[in-house]
């Protein structure tokens, strides 16, 4: 009986560790920027140089066939749409859309449901949101859009996975 309790306790610690680790360090796991007008390798070089100027970006990769730029953000970095737009514009292209995969917890912002990203604490106001308990740990795949100046970005949910419910 005692050894069974120890096993359960250890398993619980391991489970908690992985859940915690998954949420805390994942943050914005992936950013995907759809770029129109990208139709030759030379253009890619110019785009890469501009995007490398954004300090928060790491592991930048371009898919020419899909016209996409994929990257991750450095730990605790905030997603800055204006910076990405500026880099793409300076490279001579147009943004089709920005998608992210982010982990965090459900919260409220200005009376709206929102995602508070783990680590950075960046807030995204959620749309296409089905009621989930505040404080629930989630992983959301969606497209980001700007709101009026000074307000948090919006995140249109495409996929939502509850990692840990708060209740």
């Amino acid at each position: 009986m005692k050894s069974k309790n120890i096993t359960i306790t250890i398993s619980g610690f391991i489970l908690f560790f992985f859940l915690f680790a998954g949420i805390s360090f994942a943050e914005i796991k992936k950013v995907e920027v759809g770029i129109d007008g990208l139709s030759c390798p030379f253009c890619v070089w110019g785009l890469k140089q501009q995007m490398k100027g954004i300090k928060s970006i790491e592991k930048l990769e371009i898919s020419l066939k899909k016209s996409l730029a994929h990257f991750t953000l450095k730990e605790d970095s905030l997603l800055n749409i204006e910076e990405i737009e500026g880099a793409v514009k300076d490279a001579g292209f147009s943004i089709r859309g920005i998608g992210i995969e982010a982990a965090g917890e459900i919260t409220a912002y200005d009376g709206f449901p929102a995602l508070k990203v783990s680590g950075s604490g960046q807030i995204f106001i959620l749309s296409n949101f089905k009621k989930i308990n505040p404080g629930a740990a989630v992983l959301i795949d969606g497209s980001v859009h700007k709101h009026e100046k000074g307000k948090s970005y919006g995140l249109l949910i495409k996929k939502l996975k509850i990692i840990e419910d708060s209740l």
């Binding site: 030759c40 390798p41 030379f42 253009c43 070089w45 110019g46 140089q49 001579g92």
Partner: peptide, 20 residues
């Protein structure tokens, strides 16, 4: 190194990126 594609004896409508 690595590059791209445009005509050999003609001008093109494309322009390089800023500071490129």
């Amino acid at each position: 190194q690595r590059v791209y594609a445009v005509s050999i004896n003609s001008n093109i409508g494309l322009t390089p990126s800023k500071n490129q």
